[in-house]
């Protein structure tokens, strides 16, 4: 069966010493002001809301993040250890990552399944894989799949927390995809053809060798692939790289931005590869 991408929604903003305000964007996107929520949930509402056109109220929500709601968790840790006070109830509740799923479901009036899923090096890939299989198996008919990463100031601490160097530009991102199993009454932007896991490089190479190459294919490589290995895959596949903008600023779920930009471009097929430090790989294939 085919899984269709019928809407994408994104928010991407490089961050300096100040954080761009989000309240107005949330209100514009979901039509109401959601009170007492932090930046992570606001970002989720903006990205999710932008991908929610004609969304079925039975759609499942799959949210992922590279770092999770750092602001909420750091806030609670500081309340406990710096102020020596128990956390406020709602602050504690918002440390649970699926709090963002709740606010999305409530704002978009959804009552389907809802999950926060994650994998350290394959954040976006894993959420898409879980959603794709649920659609392929008929467990879900529609899904809103998104990846959110926020910045917690000061910016130097944010870089230190993420263990990136002081020169690296950082960004916030919220990138979402509306997937459906039946697109008969929808405008199709793309198809999500495959989200595959590979135990090692040889398994990926074998799979790529069987993949029929088309003239307008292009290759994108994930954040964990070093430049030497990137060259290897460009040579092995013979595909041109997908260049969508000058080097984007860093956030952990950058793959979400890559996929959204490719779908927006609206032509060709994207083959995306990523790896983790132990040498496992994942591939995502999207056709427009």
């Amino acid at each position: 069966m085919t899984t269709y991408i019928v809407a994408v929604g994104s928010y991407y903003e490089p961050v300096g010493d100040e954080l761009p305000p989000l309240k107005k964007l949330v209100q514009e996107t979901v039509g109401s002001n959601i009170r007492r929520v932090g930046r992570f949930i606001q970002l989720a509402l903006i990205g999710g809301g932008r991908a929610s056109s004609q969304l079925s109220n039975e759609a499942a929500v799959y949210l992922t993040s590279g770092s999770g709601d750092v602001e909420a968790t750091v806030g609670v840790l500081n309340t406990i250890y710096r102020q020596a006070e128990p956390p406020r109830p709602l602050s504690f509740i918002n440390t649970v990552s699926n709090a963002a799923c709740f606010y999305i479901a409530q704002s978009l009036q959804l009552n389907g399944a809802s999950s926060f899923v994650s994998s350290r090096y394959f954040t976006v890939e894993t959420s898409l894989r879980v959603a794709l299989l649920a659609l392929e198996q008929g467990q879900q008919k529609a899904a809103l799949v998104g990846a959110v990463d926020s910045v917690v100031l000061p910016i130097e601490e944010h870089r230190q927390r993420l263990r990136i160097n002081a020169q690296t530009d950082v960004a916030e991102g919220s990138h979402w995809f509306q997937l459906v199993a039946d697109a008969s009454d929808r405008t199709v932007l793309a198809t999500l053809d495959a989200v595959q896991h590979f135990t090692d490089r040889e398994a990926l190479s074998a799979w790529l060798a069987e993949l029929p190459v088309e003239a307008d294919d292009c290759l994108a490589l994930g954040q964990s692939i070093e430049s030497d290995e990137a060259d290897h895959w460009l040579v092995e596949t013979g595909l041109p790289p997908f260049n969508f903008r000058e080097a984007p600023a860093y956030f952990k779920s950058l793959a979400g931005l890559v996929f959204c930009e490719f779908v927006r471009r609206g032509a060709g097929r994207l083959i995306y590869l990523n790896r983790d430090p132990v040498g496992r790989y994942m591939a995502v294939v999207i056709s427009c």
């Binding site: 993040s65 590279g66 770092s67 999770g68 750092v70 968790t73 750091v74 840790l77 500081n78 250890y81 990552s97 926060f116 994650s118 994998s119 350290r120 954040t123 601490e157 230190q160 927390r161 993420l162 263990r163 952990k252």
Partner: peptide, 11 residues
């Protein structure tokens, strides 16, 4: 300065 939640990931 102490920094909470180094290298955060749910995974």
């Amino acid at each position: 300065k102490a920094l909470a939640l180094l290298d955060p990931s749910m995974a």
